Amino acid sequence: MRMSSPSSRRKSGWVVGHVAGAPVIVAPSWLLAVGVLTFLYADTARALTGLSGSAVYVVALSFVVLLFASVFLHELAHGLVARSRGQQPREFVLTLWGGHTSFDAVSATPATSALISVAGPVVNLVLAAAFFVPLRLDLLEPHTVLWALMWSGAAANGFVGLFNLVPALPLDGGRVLEAIVWATSRDRLRGTIVAGWCGRVFAVGFVAWALLASTGDGGEPDFFLVAWCAIIGAFLWSGASAAIKNAHVVRRVDGVTLSSVARRAVTVGASDSVAHAGAVAATGGAQEVVVLSPDGRPAAYVDRAAAAAVPAEVAGTTPVTAVSVPLPVGASVDGQLSGRALVDDVGRATRYSPVVAVLVDGRVIGLIRATDVIAALRP
């Protein structure tokens, strides 16, 4: 059970309803989870109820349905608290691993992030208490089907609630830790990286615990337990690593500035010569030359290799357009942008050309090549 970052892609699956303005989606992997968990819980259901035959699997299936109902309430709590804080949930998804809730935007403050994150586990702990009270007060006949479901509901919700509060990404407790570091350091990405590394440590520790627990009595290891915990550990490691990687990518994107990706440019007219363009560039200390159309629009840029190949004796009579590459309409970016806004604008402009002009108040001040932006975003 985890919250995911904003994404433009909707998960595949069956939409079974809408809550809080967002679709509830059942992923195909959920069916696999239902089948596997029903089979795994059959022995426990048999021990708790004394039933046999197909009745055991009916009880086991009832528990699995109850479990996923609790998971849905967990995710719904995330969404409702988020909506109350002005953050619209985009979808609730039930999957092989339980479920997750995604949003249209990231939390604006550490407090909002922490409240949204803790809401799910709190619901599970409240449900665990509600299931446990009738057992504690001996209101049910032991070893009946209802008693077994209550016992299972209390145990499952207690485990899910406490497990998700572990301060390690991708668990909800990891988001709470992220929010704490964010609030104290004023750096959200630092919080993500710290919580992500805690997630990696927890994933390794979880698998190590499974190995020790399965061989603690000196007997044969429980390979099923180890395998199951290894799968969960791999899931946790993958989620934590993805969070760390995304944080580093976001930090690099936020660090992109005009000075880091643009090359200074001067402008010349379409009727000017290659020699004149070179002289203007040298005088202005520029690396690039942009050719303007009669209406002042950046119409082309000079191919430096082609310009350098023009013999000096004919450079004064060779038109600059002979060594220029056209710039389509739209192949320009706003030179007053930085960070993600600049990267997004470059992404839009490079749909027209791999080289784009940088404009400030309609005046060309530089050129940006897509390859330079890609290089700036690499680790």
Results as ranks from 00 to 15, higher is better:
Gly366Met: 10
Gly196Ala: 11
Phe68Arg: 04
Ser185Leu: 04
Phe92Met: 04
Gln287Lys: 10
Trp228Glu: 03
Ala234Tyr: 13
Ala270Val: 15
Ala114Asn: 00
Val355Ser: 02
Leu73Phe: 07
Asp334Ser: 11
Arg83Trp: 02
Phe202Thr: 13
Ile374Asn: 06
Ala242Gln: 08
Ile374Ser: 11
Ala243Met: 03
Val329Pro: 02
Gly174Pro: 00
Ile231Met: 13
Asp104Phe: 07
Gly205Lys: 14
Asn164Tyr: 00
Glu220His: 08
Thr257Glu: 09
Leu125Asn: 14
Ser332Leu: 08
Ala148Arg: 05
Ile368Gly: 05
Asp344Met: 14
Ser273Ile: 15
Leu94Lys: 05
Ser54Leu: 10
Leu73Pro: 00
Asp303Met: 07
Arg304Ile: 12
Val333Met: 05
Leu146Glu: 08
Leu377Arg: 05
Asn157His: 11
His78Ala: 07
Leu171Gly: 13
Ala119Asp: 01
Pro379Trp: 08
Gly366Asn: 08
Pro354Ala: 06
Pro89Met: 09
Ala305Gln: 03
Ser102Thr: 09
Thr144Pro: 00
Val249Arg: 12
Thr44Asn: 06
Leu337Ser: 13
Gly17Asn: 00
Pro6Thr: 01
Ala308Lys: 13
Asp104His: 07
Val302Cys: 13
Met3Phe: 00
Ala208Tyr: 02
Ser273Arg: 12
Val320Leu: 13
Ser214Val: 02
Val355Gly: 00
His143Leu: 12
Leu76Asp: 01
Arg190Ser: 09
Ala281Ile: 14
Ser62Lys: 07
Phe235Glu: 02
Leu258Arg: 12
Lys11Gln: 03
Val176Pro: 01
Ala105Arg: 15
Ala156Trp: 04
Val274Asn: 12
Val274Ser: 13
Gly278Lys: 09
Ser113Ala: 07
Ala299Asn: 08
Gly330Ser: 04
Arg297Tyr: 15
Val93Pro: 01
Gln87Thr: 11
Ala183Ser: 10
Val256Gln: 06
